[in-house]
């Protein structure tokens, strides 16, 4: 089974408002269980790639194959199926701040439930047990009944991770998961993501601004500049010159040059 890629981009292009070109002719594929980082300057199309996969954004051209189905022209029901199977983690956590941690984690089950039981928030005992198990794994047991706006940034992002695991996804999309966090919480988050990838065999696709973090954690890096892939390979062959090409800059102009 593992020889068929879980996700395949074939010549995908995306143009916003018929003017702004976000992606042009992007092609790559992900194997099941991979941990891939996408790096590139702001506005280069990293977020657009992730959002095309769970159809928060519709690709203009090309096809996206997820788990054997072409989802680029999927109807409402198929989109629902794709979203059920993909978790998403956001830079600003995107939790319902006025609800408790456990309620936010259980939101991950909404896609699997009937509309009515989701509306009234009726979860099975099994789902609740699972939610607490996940919270324990992420070290949030004590916070379970706290309201999300009482948490720190790192804790909020762990709730975000818990919510996406709750979906039992095949793929987790992370959009700048550590961009608003301090270095120590960033490490905690990246360690958890890496751990999830290895122990649960969930494929991870992560947008990152921190090149060092991408080099350390991922086994494959995709570099993207103005909507085009300029590098796709292991971290070992990502030379300084390629990094300069990705960020369209010269030596001494990047913060990574300082160290």
């Amino acid at each position: 089974m593992s020889d068929a890629p879980i996700l395949e981009f074939k010549n995908v292009s995306k143009t916003y408002n018929k003017i702004t070109k976000a992606l042009s002719d992007v092609s790559f594929s992900l194997e099941e269980g991979e941990f891939v980082s996408i790096i590139g300057p702001s506005g280069s199309g990293k977020s657009t790639i992730l959002r095309c996969i769970n159809r928060l954004v519709d690709a203009t051209e090309g096809s996206i194959i997820f788990d054997g189905h072409d989802i680029s022209r999927a109807d409402k029901r198929e989109i629902h199926q794709v979203r059920k199977k993909t978790g998403m983690i956001f830079q600003h956590y995107n939790l319902v701040n006025r609800l408790s941690v456990i309620e936010n984690v259980l939101h991950g089950r909404l896609g699997h439930k009937s509309t009515l039981s989701g509306v009234v928030g009726l979860y099975t005992e099994k789902e609740k047990e699972r939610a607490f198990e996940i919270l324990e794994k992420l070290g949030l047991t004590e916070q379970a009944y706290k309201r999300c706006d009482e948490l720190s940034g790192g804790q909020k992002q762990r709730v975000g991770i818990a919510r996406s695991i709750m979906q039992e996804p095949r793929l987790i999309l992370c959009d700048e998961p550590i961009a608003s966090l301090d270095p120590s919480s960033s490490k905690v988050i990246m360690d958890h993501l890496s751990n999830i990838n290895q122990t649960m065999n969930i494929t991870c696709l992560i947008n990152l601004h921190q090149v060092q973090v991408a080099l350390k954690y991922s086994r494959r890096i995709i570099g993207i500049t103005s909507g085009q892939i300029v590098y796709d390979g292991p971290p070992e062959t990502l030379t300084q010159d390629i990094i300069y090409e990705i960020y369209q800059s010269k030596e001494g102009e990047l913060i990574t040059d300082v160290g």
Partner: peptide, 9 residues
């Protein structure tokens, strides 16, 4: 946006 991404109606 997040709830949309989980497949909620």
């Amino acid at each position: 946006e997040a709830l949309n991404a989980t497949g909620a109606t």
